[in-house]
Structure formats: C-alpha cells, structure tokens
Amino acid sequence: MQEIELKFQIPPASRASLSESLRDAASATTRLRARYFDTGDRLLARSAFALRLRQEGEGWVQTLKGRGDGLMTRLEHNAPLGTDSGDEAPALSLERHAGTPAGVALLALLEGAGRTPADLALQFSTDITRTHTEVEADGAVVEVALDVGQIEGGGRTLPVWEIEFELIRGEPVGLLGLAYLWTEAFGLWLDARSKAERGDRLARQLTHGEVPAIKPVDPRQPWSQQLARALAPVLALVGDVADGQASTAQQVALAQAIVALLDVLRRDPVAADVIEPLTLLAGLVFDPEVWRLVDTQALWFNLLDWSLPDAR
C-alpha cells in the first residue's frame, strides 16, 4: 500500500486555535503509544524505513513504512494484532509483513547488509494524543490528524506538535487544496521529517539530519517526474532549516538543491512565476524564519501540484 500524506509543524501562536477548530469538527481522540525498532547502526533509518509496534486504543498494530515512489507517497503495511496483550507490547515479528511490497523491500535491505531480523532492537518510543477527523475536499476524502505528545530516546525527550493530512480516497489535488487552506489559516510550515527520523536523531544525540544526495535529473523524463526528483532533496532539508536546527552543510546543500531545482523549472513555461522567489530563497538558507512563511509554503504547494504524475 502507498500512503499519500503531508505533514506540517504548527507555530506556538496557532496551537490553541487550531486545536479548537479540530475539536469543533466531528473528530475523535486516540492515544498512540509506539515503540520503534532498528539495527544498532540504524540501517532502517538510513534507508528511510520505519518499523514500529503501536498501541492504538485497546489494541496493538505493527507497522512497516518504507520509501515510496513520489514526494507524497510511502510504502506502508499495517498488521493489527488485537487486544490480547493489554498495555504490554507484543513481540516483534517480520512475518507479519511477509509478501507485501514493504516487507519484501525490508528483507532485501537486511539481507543486502548481511543482517537478520534478530538484529532489530528497540531504539526509541513515542507517546502521542491524536485528534483526527475526515474531511471532504474537492472530491477527495482526507484525514486531518493533530498529533501532540513527545518522543523519548537516548535519555531525552522531544515535544511534538504537528498536523498531518492523509488521502483516504480521491485525487491528491484535493489533499493539497485542503492542506493549503489550513496553512493559510494557521501559519503551518511543511516538514518532511517523520517521527521515526526525529526519534532516531534523539536516540543518537543528534540535532540535525544528514545531507541528502543531489543527483542530476534526466531531461528525457516527463517534466513532472523531473520536478519530483529535483524537489525531493529540497523538501528533505527545509524542516531542519525552518526549525533552526540545520547544520551549515545542510544550509549550503539546500541552496545547491534549489539551484538544481531551478534548472528543471526553467524547462517549462508554466513555472515562470516561481523562478524569481525561489532564486531569492536560495540566498536565504541561513534565515529560519523565511522558511516558515506562508508565502514560502505556497511555493511548495505549487511545486507539489505540478509534480503529480497526471499534472502535465
């Protein structure tokens, strides 16, 4: 299964009003306690996988997520485990994902690195209260979920205040439209960092992530696919930059990634209006506040829209 979602950080000034708006909708609240597993050298985290056991209400679910084939998609397989364990987490078993695309990809990763499922161990945990509802938007049904809580790892804790928009059914353009309305209303800013990624850093005593590879884009590919490939390293970096946690290497890499993105955008006249503001952004990688502005988020929404497979 491929999940299609976007996640945003919520500025402190908007948290109370956003929470109230979501509670006013026909929403539900669920406590989510999760335990995340990886090898000692973080093979899964380094390969964009996340493996967890999570208590959802009265039952437990084992979930495996992996890199998907687009900016808004990820491989995902969920295995509900029932309520027999109570509050005690059941034992981890990769057999629950056998034969699924995510399960096959994880086994190939482990085997390629000379590892086995026995090398997987608990690395960090999360305790989240999720307030969520389903919203119809432009022919799509989107789950809107507010997550508030903390991540624990390496003897430290990290607070969580984020909102996620996940496509339940329909076209991704409906998700984009709804998410942009919330972004305008509450000053949200896009953040591609998962809880698993942030928890892994916490467990390793790190404050920022690695610098993604910026690879040349094949001009023979469809333009939307070129755009998706060029945009990926940009969005991988903006979370740390906007959060004021980026290393100098990440800031420089973001400027380089935007330059590479501009090369792709100049290949199609539809993108003419975003060339100048993106060029300006490339010179502002040391200013976190700029990357949290609604105008900056509007650029990401335009680019995500154009990167959809049927957009061009």
Rank of each mutant, 00 (worst) to 15 (best):
A50L: 01
A50W: 00
R52S: 09
R54E: 09
R54I: 06
R54C: 01
E56L: 11
E56S: 15
G57M: 06
G57K: 15
E58A: 15
E58M: 11
E58L: 13
W60L: 01
V61L: 05
L64G: 01
K65P: 02
K65Y: 02
G66D: 03
R67G: 02
L71D: 08
T73G: 09
R74H: 08
E76C: 10
H77M: 02
P80M: 09
S85F: 01
D87Q: 10
E88L: 06
A89N: 05
A89I: 01
A89W: 00
P90Y: 01
L92F: 02
L94R: 06
E95K: 12
R96I: 06
R96L: 14
R96Y: 05
H97P: 00
T100E: 05
P101A: 02
G103D: 04
A105H: 07
A105M: 05
A105F: 04
A105E: 04
A108P: 05
L110Q: 01
L110G: 00
E111S: 06
E111W: 03
E111T: 09
R115E: 04
R115N: 07
T116C: 01
P117E: 11
A118K: 14
A118Y: 15
D119I: 10
Q123M: 14
T126G: 08
D127Q: 05
I128T: 09
T129D: 08
R130M: 08
T131L: 15
E134S: 11
E134N: 15
E134P: 13
V135G: 12
E136A: 15
A137N: 02
A137D: 10
D138S: 10
G139K: 04
V141A: 13
V142P: 00
A145S: 09
L146A: 11
D147K: 14
D147A: 12
V148T: 12
Q150M: 12
I151N: 06
E152T: 09
G154R: 02
R156D: 12
R156G: 15
R156Y: 04
R156I: 06
T157E: 11
E162Q: 05
E162T: 13
E164S: 09
